[in-house]
Design a protein around this nucleic acid. Structure first.
Lengths: 342, 342
DNA sequence: CTGTTAGCGCTTTCAT
DNA sequence: ATGAAAGCGCTAACAG
């Protein structure tokens, strides 16, 4: 199966030593035009590709980046992995991809698996970047890594993210400016997303800055289907003074909430406005379009790889790169109709 | 950096030879309870994880599966990769993920990269499974691989897919039963998707079986945005006798087409019915919901891994596994209103 | 400019 | 039941 043609086969065919073959292939030392041509011919004839394994064992360095994300099913992570893949390919690297399925306990196991493969570095989105034994381990072993989406609170951790609190602050302000006063905050599970928590802080700050009462966050599982969300939302939206708007901690949840509200007989945005967070492509394909915070998800993946390489190759210190976000208007966010103000 | 603790470190600590450490770790030969305990203690204390590289070099076999897909941005592929990842993890394997970005020329390069990494096997979705030099190469080298989504025409190629033609045949019949007579077929680029071609065959067969005139397929790039699609569709739908329904070769395209039709001032489904293919989750989240062929995308990824393992470990011959599909009704598909029939 | 050789971490005979 | 030693494919000293 696998490889039968090794560097030795090539050396024999070219009539030189394996060291010379290596030199020609990697241009790691000058070689004569003569032997150079013979080696290249032999390589071509035999269809030789040097084994990454052999190289890795010698150099203790692979051309592989380990990736740990919660799930590929969320387009946000799919997009950032797409960015990583593209950036990694530009640098002749490949991605070793793993997913936790939102199980924080899986993180350490997956990281160990990846470390055992001698990945050159890691890119990960974890449940909680603050309290994380796995990251401590990587720090201790000096293995370079970059967080994506996570916005680390403690210094010394490299990350590519957006300013989550500032973004929800701005989004909440927009909703308030549209006349909304009772704005619900619906979140994915806080336990598996420090993003959801940071985003809630921005919401609360904006509410308080406007002299409004922040609602207690309602935690939903956005992997759940719309019917289950309808149940969870029924109490909130059938109360005497229901919210006129809902800020959701991510787009997938927001889309599901729109469906759930319809199930409850509420119109979006006429009865309830909805906004999300992330800016997934499909938010623009639905009708009405989803109002959201547009984050450069794919770019975040690309930048994470770029940053990881500066750490690996130039020994750059960890830093946090906050990419710009924009508010994306959408049909799901309307002026609060019944009692219009300012 | 990487690993400082090797099998030798463990052997010293446990006071035995490295061979014994290996035996204990892999249970590859009986060991005394005494040394067994010492080795395990040493492993735990030192935090030792055997290097996959060292193991791979010796055995010429990694615990890694190579994956080649067109793009992670399409939820269909993201879902099948999610299935692969989960199935691979169950078997202590990881995925080496690459994407072609719909460039068929990239396929061979990526496969070579993966083969150079000594992957245990490959799972791929290619532009065209029939004419494919890369697959011929894998066949020649005897490297096990399984296609996903592709429905190979030539025997001898392992694949997990659905019966694309049968599915669009059934879907087209449903549209015809709803009274539609002029049904357009909108496709992603045929050149990069043998699926789109197979699906068109089913459409044409159903139209002809009903004595209707199949429309020439209109090729669209579903990575294009809705405005560009609106232009492309304007001619077709502003003709004197426009189609009353559009069958799209995939869901992402269908969602985009729904948006484009709206841009043209056409209502869905009142003026034009739309159906897709794939069954991506978000088709159920939009309003109206997308009528489509529901394919078990994630399951296809899982089955592909399972099949690959039977080939790797049991030397099972390549076979084609066709998974069941279902027609998913949706709000985008309505009875043809103006002239209702049967 | 080129060849020889050691050795990366591990598994696996072959002895004992 | 355990150890010694070879060797997987490659790179990098070191010689020449």
């Amino acid at each position: 199966m696998a490889r039968i043609v090794t560097i030795r086969t090539v050396a024999e065919r070219a009539g030189c030593s394996i060291a010379t073959v290596s030199r020609v292939i990697n241009r790691s030392a000058p070689t004569s035009a003569d032997v150079d041509a013979r080696v290249r011919a032999a390589v071509a004839e035999l269809g030789f590709r040097p084994s990454e394994i052999g190289r890795a064992l010698k150099t203790l360095r692979t051309r592989t980046l380990g990736v740990v994300i919660p799930s590929l099913t969320n387009p946000v992570f799919a997009a950032s992995v797409a960015g990583m893949q593209s950036a990694a390919r530009e640098r002749q690297h490949t991605l070793l991809l793993t997913a936790t399925d939102y199980d924080p306990a899986a993180e350490s196991e997956l990281v160990e698996t990846l470390v055992a493969q001698n990945v050159a570095g890691l890119i990960l989105t974890v449940a909680d970047a603050a309290e994380n034994a796995t990251l401590d381990l990587l720090d201790a072993e000096g293995i370079p890594y970059v967080l994506v989406h996570n916005e680390p609170t403690r210094p010394g951790r490299a990350a590519v993210c957006v300013d989550n609190a500032a973004a929800t602050f701005a989004l909440t302000q927009t909703m308030i400016a549209a006349g909304h006063r009772r704005i619900a905050y619906l979140a994915g599970r806080f336990a598996t997303s420090d993003r959801a928590r940071r985003r809630h802080e921005g919401y609360r700050a904006a509410m308080e800055a406007a002299g409004l009462e922040p609602e207690a966050p309602l935690e939903l599982d956005y992997l759940g289907d719309a019917p289950s969300h309808a149940e969870a939302l029924a109490g909130l939206f059938r109360a005497p003074e229901p919210p006129t708007a809902a800020l959701c901690s991510n787009d997938l949840l927001a889309l599901s909430v729109v469906g759930a509200l319809r199930t409850l007989g509420l119109r979006v945005p006429d009865d309830v406005s909805v906004a999300g967070f992330d800016g997934i492509a499909l938010g623009g394909a639905v009708h009405p379009t989803l109002a959201t915070v547009d984050t450069p998800t794919r770019l975040m993946g690309e930048h994470a790889v770029a940053m990881l390489f500066t750490m690996i190759e130039a020994g750059a210190p960890p830093r946090v790169e906050r990419l710009p976000f924009t508010l994306r208007p959408g049909g799901t966010l309307a002026p609060e109709a019944p009692v219009p103000r300012v």
